[in-house]
Design a protein around this nucleic acid. Structure first.
Ligand SMILES: [Zn+2]
Length: 309
DNA sequence: CGCATTTGACCTGCGC
DNA sequence: GCGCAGGTCAAATGCG
C-alpha cells in the first residue's frame, strides 16, 4: 500500500535524473563512477536545466523525508505487532515475570529500517534464547538523533506518544543529564525511552527507545522534530549528520562546536543525507544514490553557494 | 484535588 | 567485598 505512493513520489524524484542520464541502474552494480562521469559530461551541456531540476529535487526530497519518517513509524508499529505475535506464538504468555526484574540488556540494534541492505531483520528476536535468558524481556533498543532547539531544555521530544518522566541522572561521559521516560499512552506499555543531549552539540538530542508499543499512536505522526536513525547518520558520511528542518525562525545561530554542520554546506549535506536515507531505506537503486550523492557534492554545492551569495 | 514532574534515595550490575 | 555508575522508585513539589 505504502509502496504505491512511495514509488510514485520517488518516480517524481527519479524522473529528472532519469531523462538526463539514462543509466541502466539494474545492470551496473558497483560501477557508479562510470555514469557519474557521464552525468558530469551532460552537466556541461545543460547546467541550467540541472540546477532547475535539482531545485525541484530539493523540494521533493523534503516531502520524501516526511513520508519516510511516517513510514518509519508505520514500520516500527508493524514490527511491533509481528514481534508480539511471534512471542505469543512461541511462549504463549509470560505475564508471570516479576515486575521488579528489569535487566534490559538485550541486543542493541538500531532501527532496522535503514541498516545497510538488511531491511527484513524482523526475525532478529528468535525464541531460542528464551530459555537461556528467563529474565530477558523482549525489548528492542533503537537510537535516534533528534535536532531540537536550545529552548527544548526539558528534553521533551514529541514523537506521537505520551511520555511520563520517571527519572533523571547525570552520566559521566556527558555533562548533560539523561532523562528517563515511560510511555503513558497505554496503561501497560513497556516502552521506555532515554533522552540525553549530545556532548558536542547542545541542540542535538540522542533519544533511545527501548521496547515496543502494545498499542497505536494517538495521531499518525506528530513530529515536532524529525528523527533519524543513528545508524544512517553514522554510515552516510562517516560523521554525524543531523537534519535541521525543525529549526525555529527565531534562532538562526549555528553551533560552531559541531564540526559536522558548517552553515553554507548544510544544504548540500541535507540533500546528501536525504538521498542517503531514502535510497538506503529502499535499497533498490544504489546506483542512483551514488550518482545523486556525487552530483550533489559536485554540483549542488556550487549551485547553492552561487545562489546564496 | 488530581495529575505530572522533580529529585534524592535506593537498587543492581560490573570492574577492580 | 567495595566502590562506581547507570537505572528506577517514590515522596515532595508544582500546576491546571
Ligand atoms: Zn506505548
Amino acid at each position: 500500500m505504502e509502496s504505491t505512493w512511495l514509488k510514485n513520489s520517488l518516480d517524481l524524484n527519479l524522473n529528472p535524473f532519469h531523462h538526463v542520464v539514462e543509466v541502466p541502474k539494474r545492470e551496473l552494480e558497483g560501477d557508479s563512477v562510470n555514469f557519474v562521469g557521464k552525468l558530469v559530461v551532460k552537466e556541461k551541456d545543460g547546467h541550467n536545466v540541472m540546477a532547475e531540476e535539482l531545485n525541484r529535487i530539493s523540494s521533493e526530497n523534503r516531502k520524501l523525508t516526511e513520508m519516510l519518517t511516517i513510514m518509519c513509524e508505520n514500520y516500527n508499529a508493524l514490527r511491533s505487532e509481528l514481534m508480539e505475535l511471534k512471542n505469543k506464538n512461541s511462549e504463549n504468555e509470560l505475564v508471570s515475570l516479576t515486575p521488579r526484574k528489569r535487566k534490559a540488556d538485550s541486543e542493541v540494534y538500531n532501527n532496522g529500517l535503514i541498516n545497510g541492505s538488511n531491511v527484513n531483520e524482523c526475525s532478529s528476536s528468535d525464541e531460542e534464547y528464551s530459555y537461556k535468558l528467563p529474565k530477558e524481556i523482549k525489548s528492542k533498543i533503537s537510537t535516534f538523533y533528534v535536532q531540537t532547539d536550545s529552548s527544548d531544555k526539558t528534553l521533551l521530544v514529541k514523537d506521537g506518544y505520551q511520555w511520563r518522566k520517571y527519572g533523571q541522572k547525570v552520566t559521566r561521559d556527558n555533562p548533560s543529564p539523561r532523562a528517563y521516560f515511560k510511555c503513558s499512552l497505554a496503561p501497560m506499555c513497556p516502552v521506555k525511552k532515554k533522552v540525553q543531549r549530545s556532548a558536542e552539540d547542545p541542540s542535538l538530542l540522542v533519544v533511545t527507545y527501548e521496547g515496543e508499543h502494545c498499542h497505536s499512536q494517538t495521531s499518525p505522526i506528530q513530529h515536532g522534530s524529525l528523527m533519524l536513525p543513528i545508524s544512517a547518520a553514522m554510515g552516510s558520511l562517516g560523521s554525524t549528520v543531523t537534519l535541521d528542518l525543525v529549526r525555529p525562525a527565531g534562532s538562526t545561530e549555528r553551533p560552531k562546536m559541531a564540526p559536522v554542520q558548517q552553515g553554507a554546506e548544510q544544504a548540500p549535506v541535507l540533500q546528501q543525507f536525504l538521498v542517503q536515507q531514502m535510497a538506503s531505506s529502499l535499497t533498490r537503486d544504489p546506483n542512483f544514490t551514488a550518482a545523486l550523492a556525487a552530483a550533489i557534492s559536485g554540483r549542488i554545492f556550487d549551485n547553492t553557494r552561487a545562489e546564496k551569495g
